[in-house]
Nucleic acid binder design. Structure first.
Lengths: 244, 244
DNA sequence: GGATTAGGTAACAGGCTGTAACAGAAAGGC
DNA sequence: GCCTTTCTGTTACAGCCTGTTACCTAATCC
């Protein structure tokens, strides 16, 4: 993939400058925009791989804009907002946003989400769609998105719980990319109901352990779902996706 | 789907403001209107996905307006009224309203009904109409709406109770869309007599279980009528609709 | 090596779901 | 009207799922 081109939309000039600079420092092409007209101009002018769209745009509403853009195009959109209230979050997803980040955000989290959305978008417009139609191959294993079936290299069907399946989907969408526990929790909630992820607890650790017992030959020495000490976890296998 | 555009019609300014604000907070585009002329203006001006129509409009009658609109267009209509007397309710349905809500209503119930009606409307003008004329194919099964007959992939006719049939219709109208128990109950009541859905009880769970024993090859491991833990149920099959 | 910190996981508890059993309601049949 | 059958909601119980806690081991730092 060529360098991803991001369109950053915010009506606060300082915020806009800060975000574009940060994204450029991290290897992206970041273009600033301040209004829906700006966005449309950029979309007409050239390739845009992802839009980072502020929810509060003066008297305009980012959610509405997102809805209108999505009705016309398949460009991935991440909504950014100072309001982290759940209903807002849900409104964003209903409109077809690919992800949702609350301000103030952790810069690393922003990068991780941008990368995750770009990776997903490389192949198909929406994760939900992909789940319905795709088959994932990884390390001899097969995951049928349509049937939620997991087949071992030997051809045995393995039963995963809903939460384990969701984790596997997150990993399949982000192979070779280290994910923090927070990122995983956030991604799981995207797939699910959008609750604020819990601050404490070892839920992700335990979930990872449970998935390992089911898909790792030797869970004590995991080959695919590796620990990145001090960081989180990595899905260290190549993933191939086919239709059907 | 883009953000649903709702037209809220009420001659009480305070009520109108309250409802539009609440709907906007929940991610909808809510447009206010106070008269039949207002409604026609909006309908001519742009897309309207659903009309929330107060029955008492000064000297006008929402039921009459509903009848006239429906004679001309297929826009879904939910009637809202302070009078919950049964004859009023029936008058509403005879006129072609898609649902009927009594004031004062539970806000969450309003949302559930709005969503249910929108979901149904996504595919077809009216469920009643579709039932009369359509044949549904899903996972090898066939449901003849006209005759209320269900045929298994092997061609055997399967007898469903009234309630089971109603549930199947709701599922056929919403494939791949997770439905909460409340949404299912509301949709069933629309199909039925419009009773307030019971707050407690596991009626939907049991109903789902009963339908599973009849249309799932292995009810213990359902492939079509899937559980969405913490949410509700999803009809996870593609549905094809043909005339005849 | 010893101390400290991070990660793995067994055990537990609470919540959610499936379902058998029961009872009241509705619909026929006589 | 009375009985039978069918339908459907409620209840209770069992089992699964999942987050928390606590303890242990492994890695890291000094």
């Amino acid at each position: 993939m060529a360098i991803p081109r991001l369109l950053v939309v915010d009506d606060d000039a300082e915020m806009l400058s800060m975000m574009t600079q940060f994204l450029r420092q991290n290897g992206f092409i970041a273009l600033p925009a301040a209004s829906e007209d700006d966005i449309r101009g950029h979309l007409d002018a050239g390739r845009i791989d992802l839009i980072l769209l502020d929810v509060m745009l003066g008297d305009e509403n980012g959610v509405d804009i997102c809805g209108r853009l999505r009705a016309e195009q398949d460009v991935p959109i991440i909504l950014v907002s100072a309001l982290s209230a759940d209903h807002q979050r849900m409104a964003g997803y209903e409109v077809g946003a690919d992800d949702y980040i609350a301000k103030p955000f952790n810069p690393q989290l922003l990068l991780a989400r941008v990368r995750a959305v770009l990776l997903r978008a490389q192949r198909t417009p929406s994760l939900a769609y992909r789940r319905r139609v795709s088959v994932f191959h990884f390390g001899g294993w097969v995951y049928h998105g349509k049937r939620d079936e997991v087949l071992s290299p030997e051809g045995f069907q393995v039963a995963l719980s809903q939460r384990e399946t969701a984790l596997l989907q997150v990993l399949l969408a982000n192979p070779h990319i280290p994910l923090t526990r927070e990122e995983i929790a956030a991604a799981l909630d995207v797939t699910g109901d959008g609750n604020q992820p819990e601050a404490t607890g070892r839920a992700i650790d335990v979930l990872v352990g449970r998935l390992r017992t089911k898909i790792e030959k030797n869970p004590k020495d995991p080959q695919m779902l590796r620990t990145e000490r001090g960081t989180g976890y990595v899905f260290a296998v190549d993933v191939a996706v086919t239709d059907s």
